[in-house]
């Protein structure tokens, strides 16, 4: 066992963990935050993407024990964050989700894209989304939702 102290969704967590746990399993199994989904467990599909200190990372290939002292935000943790609210509305209105499995990772990625890039055309958004697989939507709605939120940011 190893000791882990971190902040998850604004809440301080200190606990003993099995050091082999990855961050996704820690969030899901130990904190019951089931919104972080596992799609490949080798960092390639993006479903498990969460924010670590404000930056998107793959929770499936991040050891939980490496997260000492960091701040994690999962899909459950945005409360009434303005940008996330706008993204959620845009995702719904642009039909950017179907089965919903990739959605938490897509939102974390979209949040980073909109926060980081003040200007991005369709191709840049598509390139920035390349690490996230959606098997249902064909991506059009996702790209449009992000385009819209970038435009709103500059409005």
């Amino acid at each position: 066992m190893t000791t882990l102290s971190l902040t998850v969704n604004g809440r301080q967590v200190s606990t003993e963990i099995d050091p082999r746990l990855n961050l996704a399993d820690f969030l899901r199994e130990r904190l019951s935050l089931k919104g972080t989904h596992l799609g490949c467990e080798h960092g390639a599909c993006g479903a498990c993407t969460v924010l670590m200190d404000g930056m998107p990372i793959r929770s499936c290939i991040t050891m939980a024990a490496s997260c000492d002292g960091v701040e994690i935000t999962t899909v459950e943790g945005y409360d009434d964050n303005k940008l996330m609210s706008r993204l959620r509305r845009a995702f719904r209105e642009e039909h950017a989700l179907q089965c919903g499995y990739c959605t938490p990772g897509m939102l974390a990625t979209a949040y980073d894209i909109v926060s980081r890039l003040d200007r991005a055309d369709e191709n840049e958004i598509r390139a920035a989304l390349a690490g996230c697989v959606c098997r249902c939507t064909g991506y059009r709605g996702i790209v449009r939702a992000i385009e819209r939120c970038i435009a709103e940011k500059n409005a």
Binding site: K34, G35, H37, E76, E93, L97
Partner: peptide, 21 residues
Amino acid sequence: ILRREDARFLEGRGRFIGDIE
């Protein structure tokens, strides 16, 4: 019309097989 099912997925409140304990 917009989808009834979206809200739960957008907030991470879907309930997939791996979420059931």
